[in-house]
């Protein structure tokens, strides 16, 4: 029997994506410490914002500030953290509907354990001190009133 051969294969690349005006504005907001949504013709607000309406595909342009507080619509617990993610500790992952937005966004939940999470709880944004315009400028969300 011949030797079974194997080798590590790592595919790695620092993709740099141009953002266009809407994604760029959202990321600019994160860098400046605010969260933006975008208004649809029916007045509802998408967060995170897309350049287009998810149903009609027509352009959207009216960016509005939302959050930083919101409601946790769903959660799970990630332990161990995934190696490429921005988190190096076990953490929650949640669907968070920010105040002023009508759709939830996916982001991390910074609590000690899953027992600290429940659907319907109020959460609020926590920011990284150094921000560059990236979704991970938002460190994640913590229970409202938590003194972190």
């Amino acid at each position: 029997m011949a030797e079974r051969l194997r080798a590590d294969l790592v595919l790695e690349y620092p993709f740099t994506r141009t953002t266009g005006p809407v994604i760029g504005a959202f990321l600019t907001g994160l860098r400046e410490g605010i969260i933006l949504g975008i208004r649809r013709p029916d007045g509802t607000v998408l967060c995170p914002p897309t350049e287009y309406d998810p149903e009609s595909s027509e352009p959207l342009t009216d960016l509005v500030e939302v959050g930083p507080g919101g409601e946790l619509l769903s959660w799970t617990w990630v332990d161990p953290p995934r190696s490429q993610s921005p988190w190096d500790q076990p953490h929650g992952l949640g669907l968070i509907r920010l105040d002023g937005a009508d759709t939830p966004m996916v982001h991390g939940l910074l609590v000690d354990g899953p027992e600290g999470l429940s659907v319907g709880m109020r959460v609020t944004a926590r920011w990284r001190p150094e921000r560059e315009g990236h979704i991970a400028d938002l460190k994640g969300f913590v229970p409202e009133g938590a003194d972190q």
């Binding site: 995170p48 959660w75 993610s85 992952l93 996916v106 991970a136």
Partner: peptide, 24 residues
């Protein structure tokens, strides 16, 4: 690749968010 991908939420975790909404 702008909002979701860079957070590297794995497929099981994403499915779990759906599952909880269905259960709740």
């Amino acid at each position: 690749p702008y909002y979701l991908g860079p957070l590297w939420p794995d497929a099981f975790s994403m499915a779990a968010l759906q599952a909880r909404i269905m259960l709740e």
